[in-house]
Design a protein around this nucleic acid. Structure first.
Length: 419
RNA sequence: GUGGGUGUAGCUCAGCUGGUUAGAGCACCUGGUUGUGGCCCAGGAGGCCGUGGGUUCAAGUCCCAUCACUCACCCCA
């Protein structure tokens, strides 16, 4: 590698043609499924005002230390979007979508930016697809959102998934629970890690998320958030569960499942894959009934999820689904044949036949090798002899059979073949 | 931000306790017919052994630093 070469940014990656096939397949599946479930695509800008994200997740790592933020030449504080719910909600409010229809179902496929230390399944520029459904506070909406996520994964062929489900209740439920949890943890506070001690004040629910064994041990006897649910929270969650049962969707209850962003209410869920490393969450989401209002819109319930595309492709593993191979390879010989080769290639391509030829002016042997490698079913050979006789040679690359065909009739002839 | 691992040809890697022209497989190129692929055979191109310093008669091999990649912590999709 040349010393002075300018490399890509850490944690970003180029998607080369062999990989882009897989991305396209995933994107197509997503779009088809979204269409079936009645979701329309929304595309928001790559960057937003920094305050938009700050107002949504002050206490989170994503917002507090992972954002790519800068001040532009006009003095505006801007940020490359690190998550998509806030921008979509912003757009929902700004375009008054709620005023046009009581129900809005949106999906996106987009690139996000977080300055984390890269590792397997975690990159600084990464991609998510996701949905946001605005308008319904009812459990059937929750169930649909979860079913939709699973439908996409099923269609793409992902296996080994686990759906974890929880309800973190309404805001009054959580403030009650915060207190009972603090009361419970107080005697153990000196046994907690430094970060957990910090969270004890700002966001004690996050302590539930810990991976430290001794903290998990302490938390075993912690009060469950379900004890703090209001009657409505409980009824909502039970109905969500009942609906999932009805839809034949399996899930496990995870009372310690707290999502990363601050704005969630009631239903939260996460889908993990056994095919990944430490970063095994493929999809995370939940309800955020207060967010639209927080960001300055009319009170509107909402629920959504986001799924990591890199992680999905990682979990799918390497299947060598090579794209569509060349169908016809034209072998040209000599200066005189060049215009005929170019014209034939163009005519065939205009007929939607995947055609290629050798622009390197190599020997016939090299060109035949190339034809073979390209996966073409037939090779067309045009040289001085053929120009003179007006007949090109068509070689079937499977059988090796070769026959002359009038150059003028080539396009029609090839069209009549099954390639 | 904190740890661990790894950096040798385009790719995957070998190179024993430091020793002379740095290897293999795959890929690539050329040839084996004067205008015909796959298989086979022969040949070829391609590496300042990540970078910088040090130890030594001698360093891809040892030491230090640095950078990059990677996995994990953390965090999360």
């Amino acid at each position: 590698m040349t010393k002075e070469f300018i490399r890509s940014i850490k944690g970003t990656q180029d998607i080369l043609p062999d990989q882009s096939q897989r991305w396209q397949a995933l994107e197509t599946t997503i779009r088809n499924t979204m269409d079936t479930y009645g979701y329309g695509e929304i595309r928001t800008p790559a960057f937003e005002r920094t305050e938009l994200f700050a107002s949504v997740g002050e206490g989170t790592d994503i917002v507090s230390k992972e954002m790519y933020s800068w001040t532009d030449q006009g003095g505006e504080n801007l940020t490359l979007k690190p998550e998509l719910t806030a921008p979509v909600v912003r757009s929902f409010i700004q375009n008054n979508l709620g005023g046009q229809s009581p129900m809005n179902k949106l999906y996106y496929i987009d690139a996000l930016f977080r300055r984390e230390r890269p590792q397997k399944g975690r990159y600084r520029q990464f991609h998510q697809f996701g949905i946001e459904a605005f308008g319904s506070e009812h459990p059937e909406m929750d169930a649909e959102v979860i079913a939709l996520a699973l439908a996409v994964f099923n269609d793409i062929g992902l296996e080994g998934l686990t759906l974890k489900l929880n309800s973190i209740g309404s805001s009054e439920c959580r403030s009650n629970y915060r207190n009972t949890l603090r009361d419970f943890l107080k005697p153990h506070i000196n046994d907690l890690s430094e970060t957990s001690q910090n969270r004890f004040e700002n966001n004690p629910l996050r302590i539930l998320d810990t991976k430290a064994p001794h903290e998990i041990e302490i938390l075993k006897n912690a009060p469950n958030i379900s004890d703090s649910w209001t009657a409505e929270d409980k009824a909502h969650f039970e109905e969500v569960c009942f609906l999932l049962d009805t839809l034949g969707i399996q899930y496990s209850l995870a009372s310690n499942l707290v999502r990363g962003l601050d704005y969630y209410t009631r239903t939260t869920f996460e889908i993990t894959s056994t095919a990944l490393g430490a970063q095994d969450a493929i999809c995370g989401g939940g309800r955020y009934d207060g967010l639209v209002e927080t960001l300055g819109g009319k009170p509107t319930p909402g629920i959504g999820f986001a799924a990591g595309m890199e992680r999905i492709l990682l979990a799918l593993g390497d299947d060598d689904s090579s794209g569509n191979p060349t169908q016809v390879y034209i072998v040209g010989l000599g200066d005189g044949a060049r215009p005929s080769v170019a014209k034939l290639a163009e005519d065939l391509r205009q007929n939607n036949i995947r055609t290629d030829f050798d622009p390197l002016r190599r020997s016939i042997k090299a060109q035949m090798r190339e034809a073979n490698k390209s996966g073409a079913t037939i090779a067309v050979i045009i040289g001085d002899k053929e120009l003179e006789s007006g007949q090109a040679e068509i070689k079937d690359l499977k059988t090796g059979d070769q026959e002359p065909v009038k150059i003028k009739a080539l396009v029609d002839h090839i069209n009549s073949l099954t390639l």
